[in-house]
Amino acid sequence: MNRRDFLKVAGSGALIATTSGAAEARGNLPVPDNAVGMLYDSTLCIGCRACVYKCKEVNDMPNVVRDGEVQWDQAEELSGDTLNIIKAYKQGTGETKNSAVDGFAFIKRNCMHCVDAGCVSVCPVSAMQKDPETGIVSHNPDACIGCRYCVAACPYNVPKYEYDEAFGQIQKCQLCNQKGVERINKGLNPGCVEVCPTGANIFGTREELLQEAKRRLALKPGEDYTYPLERVGSTYGHVKAAPDYTQHIFGEHEGGGTQVMVIAGMEHTKLGLPDLPERSYASVSETVQHTIYGGMLAPAGLLAGLLYFARRSCKETDKEGEDEV
């Protein structure tokens, strides 16, 4: 085989790769028909952490205790024992709520239930699943091999592996709909929503939550608004003067959109939410992968060429070998 032949093989492989790929390129996944999620309004949150407590109760998780003796939950970050946490932004004197300067604000962190979830895309054994109906991202530990690619590929660092256990597993918020809990299927709200006293965290379809978020952003600061508790249109609600909302619904477009969305009185980056492009990383990754391996055409073509040349060189070697002998 001369160099020209070699280049031909390489070229044909590349050609097949690029031609087969064009058809496979994919954009962001569509929003599931009955996508459900949550809307977290940072301006309403009072930091009571009832949601954190309830989450632990529903998911049967222990308190995180630091430095020994303390008896209450001291979780500082999401972890294998904490699927939901309230964190606080604080700047300067930290006196004014929702103010980026000399103010404070709360943020609830949990799984965002991405529309085009990175963890689902990268899991080699389909242990991460997105429900085609509700869009809830669930995890199946019986399939999981613990490679933790989902952890690395989650823009929000949500899936957590239990490093301190010999037989640890990945833990993440499954919107209280995992096997044995199934609150959504039973018509209940997720635990964190049920206990939220101010309606800072409400449950609903992504569509109605988006509309609610847009209604709120359209309010003039100081205007009275009836904030519902638990669900949009709930009979429980409370009247409160609207804050000065930052005109951005985090999760409407971020990384292909999320089903858990956030509105706040300051930029999302201040609250630790990342800047993400509209195109999901998963869609880029899958496009690359399917461009190369779409229908396994390129590898098959390449293998055919490789077989041909390998056979030829082996034969030549044999012959020469025999000649020598």
Binding site: I46, A88, T93, K97, P197, H238, G272
Partner: peptide, 21 residues
């Protein structure tokens, strides 16, 4: 009507946005 919860310099006992891990 629901109260605004005043927590005096509140975030002292809350985890910050980026706690060292």
């Amino acid at each position: 009507q629901l109260a605004d919860v005043i927590t005096v310099t509140p975030p002292t006992t809350f985890p910050g946005i980026a706690e060292p891990v």
